[in-house]
């Protein structure tokens, strides 16, 4: 966000008035918020890297006490998980590409106001954002069109998102019309105008939508849970849900009981495995995050200003 237009940063008065304590207070509060946002990830990371039996003793704050990669070794031994990672990747890539394609086509079609019925189509799509039939009828529809328990159930129902389509449409409407018109005058066809002129100009919003879609695909677990049965279609997130469901919350037991149980079992307890799996699922997001986050802000702004 650019706030450089605001005068207070460059304002000489505030320095002269010596608002050092004010600056310190602001900085400390911001640092605290940053800590709250980041620390939970750090905590998960150190637990995943700590010796499983030692973890049960608690008191892990900033560094692993007994460093080990055993949990990760255990996680990567799991063939099911490797396959799930492949499914997650496949649905993220193909889901994003396909959704981008269909959303863009629809958005372009909807961006021309002199189209007869464009108002009707507008209401036709927007209504679906506010009202739905509910989850049971939705399931029945998926069953009727034979998507249940297929890979396509991850892709086709999400091929269009009305909200994302509207974001692209708003962006396309803001592009100068003259470019398209002159291209038509030069004899370019519809397809050339769309793919040669409009799409390249819409790159920023398309990057945003790609990001939204990819994050949504990667994060999704509920569709796997309800619409698929085959183990071959299970995703990484779903594996983690399964681990979570098997996980005893630990609240009802005393530490001694848990320790006793942990020592009987495999030295790698469910807790470290759970955290290591969580890390495996999170790290791809954290790695690409710094590079893509600016598109995210842009997308919100389009939605906030016009929507």
């Amino acid at each position: 966000m650019k706030n450089s237009a605001l005068p207070n940063r460059h304002n000489p008065f505030s320095r002269r008035n010596g608002h050092l304590s004010y600056d310190i207070a602001v900085t400390v509060l911001l640092a605290f918020i940053g800590f709250i946002c980041l620390y939970p990830f750090w905590n998960v990371a150190i637990i995943s890297l700590n010796d499983a039996q030692d973890t049960v003793r608690g008191g892990l704050y900033f560094w692993p006490r007994k460093f080990t990669l055993e949990s990760y070794r255990e996680v990567f031994k799991n063939k099911e998980l490797i396959h799930a990672a492949f499914i997650s990747l496949a649905r993220t890539v193909s889901g994003t590409v396909i959704a981008l394609f269909f959303n863009t086509l629809l958005a372009y079609g909807m961006s021309k106001k002199d189209l007869f019925g464009s108002k009707f189509f507008g209401y036709f799509f927007v209504f679906t954002m506010y009202f739905g039939g509910g989850i049971v009828p939705y399931y029945m529809v998926l069953k009727t069109v034979k998507l249940i328990d297929t890979f396509w159930v991850y892709i086709i129902p999400g091929a269009i998102s009305v909200y994302n389509m509207i974001l692209i449409r708003i962006y396309m409407e803001s592009l100068p019309q003259e470019l398209e018109e002159s291209a038509y005058l030069d004899g370019a066809g519809d397809i050339v105008v769309l793919f040669g002129i409009v799409l390249p100009l819409s790159k920023p919003v398309l990057a945003t939508i790609a990001l939204f879609t990819a994050v949504g695909q990667w994060s999704s677990w509920f569709d796997t849970n309800l619409y698929t049965y085959k183990t071959s279609l299970k995703t990484l997130q779903f594996i983690l849900v399964q681990i979570l469901n098997n996980y005893d919350l630990g609240n009802s037991k005393s530490v001694a009981e848990i320790l006793q149980q942990a020592s009987k079992q495999n030295p790698v307890s469910s807790d470290s495995i759970r955290m290591a799996t969580a890390m495996v699922v999170t790290v791809p997001i954290i790695v690409v995050y710094p590079f893509v986050q600016k598109y995210f802000v842009k997308g919100i702004m389009i939605g906030a200003v016009k929507g």
Binding site: V44, S219, V241, M275, F296
Partner: peptide, 10 residues
């Protein structure tokens, strides 16, 4: 950006 699955674990 983090799924609820991860958040729940955290």
């Amino acid at each position: 950006f983090i799924s609820w699955v991860i958040c729940a674990n955290i």
